[in-house]
């Protein structure tokens, strides 16, 4: 998975802005969303993102899995990433 060609991101104090410049739509997300997008950009699979963030946040994977997968789904539903 990776961000689509005309999708740009920029760090902000609250997290991150995700800008689909082709559709001219802007999304904002918090620090956790930013971490997920960063890992997606590095080529991590959903499973590896869950694993990596469970280490980072010191939480059980089961605790955070649903939130992470739901966030990735919202990226897909808004056509921000391609598989």
């Amino acid at each position: 998975m990776k961000l689509k060609k005309f999708v740009k991101t920029r760090d902000e104090k609250f997290g991150e802005v995700i800008f689909d410049t082709l559709k001219e739509k802007v999304f904002v997300t918090n620090e956790t969303g930013k971490d997920i997008v960063d890992l997606l950009q590095q080529g991590y699979s959903s499973e590896n993102i869950v694993r990596s963030l469970s280490d980072l946040y010191n939480k059980e994977p089961a605790e955070i899995q649903n939130d992470i997968l739901s966030f990735i789904d919202s990226l897909k539903n808004n056509s921000l990433i391609e598989v």
């Binding site: 999304f27 997300t29 808004n78």
Partner: peptide, 17 residues
């Protein structure tokens, strides 16, 4: 993830466009 209209320019370090 939130879309578009709730962006407050005061939260942004720079313009987006």
């Amino acid at each position: 993830m939130d879309k578009n209209n709730i962006i407050n320019i005061n939260d942004l370090e720079a313009p987006l466009f």
